[in-house]
Simulated assay, not measured.
Amino acid sequence: MAKEMEGDNRKRRALARAAREEGHRASEAAVSLGSSKQRRHAEHAERAEQNGPPPEGAHKPGPHAPRPQEAPAPEPAWPRRPPPTGDNTPDTGALRLRYRELVTSAADQIGADFDTARDAARATVAVLARTVDEAGRRRLLDVVPAELTQEQDLSTPLGQADVIGFVREVSEQLHCPPEQGRRRAEAVFLAITEQSPGVLGELHLPDELEELTRPPQPGGGLVGPDGHTAAIDDEELRAALRRLPDWTGDSRAITRTLVLPPDQLERVLLRLDRLKQELGRGPRISRPDERTAQFAVRTTNAGAVTAIDIDLALRVDEAITQANAGLA
């Protein structure tokens, strides 16, 4: 019997080799050692397909068994569903002034960078909150951007609730002269009014502060805390000239002399002309010769140098640099 099985196996192997040489698999020619089992598996699969699924068993639910509940699909993050009908609660956040637009507008008014204008807006809003009554404070906090009120003292009443006290408090927070403090507060008020013309009126400002909300007079001149143009003192002048190494002068006027090839000098003067149109004022310019220009700044109605003259001198220096002019 064993010899007979061995002969059968040898025969199958020979037939399998022959099938492979002809490009077929041994199982396709039914000559592999397991071919009989493969045929039985194929026949079983064919019967199962004809007879349908096997009958239900102990662990298989029947066709009438209850199906498990499927988890509901998650609610999409977008688009959001509209609020329920009849919900008329106002969205105060949607009514807030726009932070970046407000600060940028104030920066343009005072000719400063974004950070300086942001600090001015924070100080002005904080002092304003301490000046108005409780109803005005709540209204103010409803509309101003949260970035301007975070970590601020908004409730301690201001000791002197008039223009001088308001400007003094803003200036102390900004560490700047009162003239600059007033100008920066006015710029913030103007930026608020540009976005929401009626909001300052809703705060019921003291009558003494109304003048801070009026548009600045043309010409760009700074005024002191009491509304009159104020000169800087000698110490402030020395500090300003340290920031303006190319300028010289005293409390009456500061000057700068620029010597350049004529074509470069003309480029500078054109840029300064655009600066004058932008600010409403510019330096007095004299031309001793075609290669030389002398610039002088002072506030005429004060007969002296004011804080805005220092700002103007800084802008003149920036214009010279932007014109790509090298000193000769």
Rank of each mutant, 00 (worst) to 15 (best):
P55F: 07
R256P: 04
Q217E: 15
P63D: 15
T193H: 08
G57I: 03
V127F: 04
M5A: 13
V31D: 06
A240R: 08
G159C: 00
L279Q: 10
A26E: 15
R214A: 14
E290L: 13
K37T: 12
I164S: 14
L314A: 15
T149E: 05
F295V: 06
G93H: 08
A185S: 15
A94P: 01
V316G: 02
P79Y: 07
G326R: 15
T89W: 02
M5E: 13
P61K: 08
G326D: 13
A73G: 07
A135L: 11
Q180T: 15
T193S: 14
T321G: 02
L154Q: 09
E318K: 11
L237N: 07
P63N: 10
L154P: 09
G198F: 00
R168S: 15
F189N: 09
R214Q: 15
V103P: 05
A123T: 04
P55C: 06
E70F: 00
G34V: 06
E28Q: 14
A323F: 02
L140S: 03
S32G: 12
G227I: 03
Q217G: 12
T104Y: 00
A185E: 10
K11P: 00
T89K: 11
R256F: 05
I110R: 14
E172Q: 14
I285R: 09
Q50F: 02
A107H: 01
E28L: 09
G34E: 13
A77I: 07
A231E: 10
A65V: 04
H41K: 13
E75C: 01
F295G: 04
R98L: 12
P197C: 09
L312T: 05
G249C: 06
F189Y: 15
K60H: 12
V223G: 08
V31A: 05
F166C: 10
E4D: 13
Q50V: 12
A185D: 06
S36Y: 09
R298Q: 13
D119Q: 15
P283W: 06
A71Y: 05
Q109C: 01
G227Y: 07
A121C: 15
A48H: 09
D233R: 04
T299M: 05
R12W: 03
G181T: 01
A94K: 12
A48P: 00
R271I: 01
K60Y: 02
E194N: 07
S196Q: 11
D8N: 09
G159K: 14
G7V: 03
